[in-house]
Design a protein around this nucleic acid. Structure first.
Lengths: 148, 148
DNA sequence: TGTATACATTTGTATATACAATTGTTGTAG
DNA sequence: CTACAACAATTGTATATACAAATGTATACA
């Protein structure tokens, strides 16, 4: 992934800018791949993220604000994101009786089943994306990212 | 930027996943900061990117497909992106007489003026984002990113 | 010349996202 | 007990983006 080649410039880019552009380009690539891998299942990366959070909850339901807290990309409208999953039958929604302001989201059996199928392609996609890096390099990359 | 803390999980995340999530989180942070820095000028990061490409063209005009080629985030609709800049008076649009299929986009004096103001805040924002990294670390980060 | 093909952009449409305002619910100070 | 603030979610609206189809222009070639 050569920065100058991708954005087709001959100019020398200052190191801070180049690094940030590089990060954005890599992110684009990651999102492209993940979006493509999930497309056959009809879910967006954000929706997949929510399904995985719900599975991680075990039998405890999650309300919208905790979902939002745990999402990789916090978005301003979790209500409508969950609407989409509801329409697909992947989640259930119920009003919390203990606190009627809250709503309880749980993953359905169908949601769990489709999630299991997605697990495998996601694992492969992720492995492929980082195939060029050794474990040591991955750790080093994480360490550097921590400083941003 | 601690991954587990931000997405509020206690689980141990496999290294490849963790690295990719980390990259996405860092990208979110970058986009947030850049969007915020540009907000007072009423332009989105994409629009800023186009303005900078146009300035880099010198007096040569750019057509839509070359703009799209050089953008950091290729998008499917450069027409409408340029529409926004046109509405703000930051660019001009003319049909290319040599090849009437093409359109020639140039940056206006007003576009150049506002871009100069944005340059400074962008430089500061970028510097601040990478303030925690030495030059050596930045180079190392670029090297690792090249492998994805 | 006429017709097919490729090219460059534009338009249409569905979906996604950001942000503000609103609704309904709960807790609390007086 | 009432008024008020805080909380959780929803709705409205504008803008952004993805993707496909359509428009207009140029090129190739029989």
């Amino acid at each position: 992934m050569n920065v100058e080649e991708i954005i087709k410039t001959q100019k020398k880019i200052p190191l801070p800018s180049r690094t940030l552009i590089h990060l954005m380009l890599v992110n684009n690539k990651i999102m492209e791949r993940i979006t493509g891998a999930l497309k056959p299942y009809g879910v967006s990366p954000q929706q997949f993220n929510v399904l995985r959070i719900l599975r991680g909850q075990g039998d405890r339901p999650a309300n919208l604000s905790t979902l939002n807290d745990r999402m990789v990309s916090k978005m301003s409208n979790t209500t409508r994101l969950v609407d989409k999953l509801l329409a697909k039958g992947f989640v259930d929604r119920a009003i919390c009786e203990a606190n009627r302001r809250k709503v309880e989201i749980t993953i359905t059996a169908e949601g769990l089943a489709v999630l299991e199928k997605m697990d495998e392609v996601m694992r492969l996609t992720e492995a492929d994306l980082v195939a060029g890096l050794s474990d040591t390099e991955l750790i080093e990359l994480n360490t550097l990212l921590d400083k941003i």
